[in-house]
């Protein structure tokens, strides 16, 4: 028989990774927004993501909905444990989502909606980092409910991961901008990419060194034999990918930075996952324990296998239609 819970854990991880790949760069644009020199540059930067942003954000709904559907127990434990970060993230996404429309509707208050876009993007990213950090750090569970306090998610480690994710998304955003713009804006994006890359590399090292010391269990997972042979390639590949990102920035290779950054974040994802399996709520609830009954999982799997290729297909088609560089006041685009 198929191991449906494991398949769903894999699909969910894939969904979250696609979310990071897609919404990561448009949140990153929000993080870089205040550093752009002119209003025209901000307009152009926003127009590079305007036709695709809400499709990107739908993957976050899939993440929440998928966790609810496939692992209701995990959802029921994780949401109260991360109550404040989730609420703040959602409100921040409201601030940033409305800005896409409002700033064009109300030229006299454009500045307000620009601030709303920046502040919303930054706070949402930071809170996603907090959520990720809390997942690595662990969640206290008793019976079938969260048993920790209201502020357990706020620790030096989670805050560090929060800033780390901001650096990572900013790098994705810069990588996207060099792909989609030219001239002065592209040059500017390369300067952003350089700074974001340096911050990202530093944070990756700090978080990687810190993580094994969070719990003895994660430590053994990494440093006992024969595990070490299996996990050792992860940091090595991470270092190689970081070098690739640096090479792309140094040589101004437009098409290298975004994909290489994505691989880098993917490897970090795998690195964090090493300490997590077979749990879905770290060191408390396993994937198998949290899973919905097979009848639910199978019913959804049929839908997912039919729909996901279709979704990926028309999402790719939409990106294809809007391919190419976006220029200021680009008539064809608007």
């Amino acid at each position: 028989m198929l191991d449906l819970p494991l398949i769903w854990a894999g699909l969910l991880a894939l969904g979250i990774f696609i979310y990071v790949a897609l919404d990561g760069f448009d949140l990153g644009i929000g993080l870089l927004f205040p550093f752009l020199a002119t209003d025209e540059e901000r307009d152009t930067a926003m127009n590079t993501v305007a036709p695709v942003w809400d499709g990107n954000e739908t993957w976050l709904i899939l993440g929440g909905g998928g966790l609810f559907a496939a692992f209701p127990l995990a959802y029921a434990v994780v949401m109260p444990a991360l109550y404040a970060p989730f609420i703040i993230m959602l409100l921040a996404l409201v601030f940033r989502g409305v800005a896409f429309e409002y700033r064009w509707r109300d030229p006299t208050h454009k500045r307000i909606w620009d601030v709303s876009f920046v502040f919303g993007s930054a706070l949402a990213t930071f809170m996603q980092g907090i959520v990720l950090g809390t997942f690595v750090q662990g969640i206290e569970v008793e019976g079938r409910a969260y048993a920790g306090g209201w502020w357990d998610w706020l620790t030096p480690f989670t805050v560090t991961v929060g800033f780390a994710l901001c650096a990572g998304y900013a790098l994705l955003g810069a990588g996207w901008l060099v792909l989609k713009t030219d001239n002065a804006l592209r040059e500017q994006a390369y300067r952003f990419a350089k700074r974001a890359a340096i911050s990202t590399f530093v944070f990756v090292v700090v978080v990687s060194v810190w993580t094994p010391f969070l719990s003895p269990e994660i430590f053994t997972r990494w440093f006992s034999l024969p595990n070490l042979y299996w996990v050792a390639p992860v940091p090595l590949l991470t270092a190689a990918t970081a070098a690739l990102v640096a090479w792309g920035i140094r040589g101004q290779r437009d098409t290298v930075i975004y994909p290489a950054t994505l691989v880098l974040l993917g490897l970090c994802f795998v690195g964090l996952g090493v300490g997590l399996t077979p749990y879905i709520v770290p060191r408390a609830i396993t994937i198998q324990d949290a899973a919905a009954p097979d009848s639910s999982l199978l019913f959804m799997l049929v839908g997912a296998l039919l729909m996901l290729p279709l979704i990926l297909g028309y999402t790719a088609y939409s990106y294809w239609i809007f391919r190419g560089k976006v220029r200021p006041g680009d008539g064809g685009y608007h």
């Binding site: 739908t58 909905g65 998928g66 609810f68 559907a69 496939a70 839908g303």
Partner: peptide
């Protein structure tokens, strides 16, 4: 949950 997942998908 699965019905909501179908809504998203």
């Amino acid at each position: 949950g699965p019905l909501l997942a179908y809504e998203v998908l």
